[in-house]
């Protein structure tokens, strides 16, 4: 699929919590405050996965959330990017040996960008978005 250049300046983000402790959510909300103002670059939080270009996933994936996470991913319109926010999504974090975990996010969804941290700072999340944009540009260059 052809990725237009307008993508770089209009990323709509949908946030999905797959079992996070709410620490990453607080940092994501901090990222969209006037102090960082990602709307300058056209980045917006949207309420529906149908509208979104980026899926922000926080937390390790619990057994109940795994099918829902897949469904939300499938509901998004192509082209799309998945970002995994926080340590839990990469390794399970403090919940790594919990009995009700399906595993880290990349066991369930194809993750494009990882943002480590427990929780990651807003600067780190913005850096992750920049990485996602670079990945989109790289894909664009390959076409």
């Amino acid at each position: 699929m052809k990725i237009p250049s307008s993508f770089n300046r209009s990323l709509w983000v949908f946030h999905l919590n797959t079992g996070s402790c709410n620490g990453c959510e607080i940092e994501i909300v901090a990222t969209i405050t006037p102090r960082y103002d990602p709307e300058r670059f056209g980045i917006r939080l949207v309420g529906s996965p149908r509208h979104a270009d980026v899926l922000l996933v926080t937390g390790p994936v619990t057994r109940k959330m795994a099918p829902r996470a897949r469904r939300v991913y499938e509901q998004m319109a192509d082209p799309k990017v998945v970002m995994c926010i926080g340590t839990c999504g990469q390794s399970g974090g403090v919940f790594f040996d919990s009995y009700n975990l399906e595993g880290p996010v990349d066991q369930v969804l194809p993750v494009d960008v990882y943002v480590p941290g427990c929780p990651p700072r807003p600067e780190a999340i913005i850096f992750g978005v920049v990485k996602a944009l670079e990945k989109l540009e790289r894909l664009e260059a390959q076409q």
Binding site: M1, K2, I3, P4, S6, F7, R9, S10, P34, D37, E39, R40, F41, G42, R50, D53, Q75, A77, D78, P79
Partner: peptide, 22 residues
């Protein structure tokens, strides 16, 4: 805040037109 550029809605429309129609 500083806010998006004046042409942001045009960029959004161009992006939406390029996206899949589910």
């Amino acid at each position: 805040r500083i806010g998006p550029p004046l042409t942001q809605p045009f960029i959004d429309i161009r992006k939406l037109l390029a996206k899949e129609n589910v």
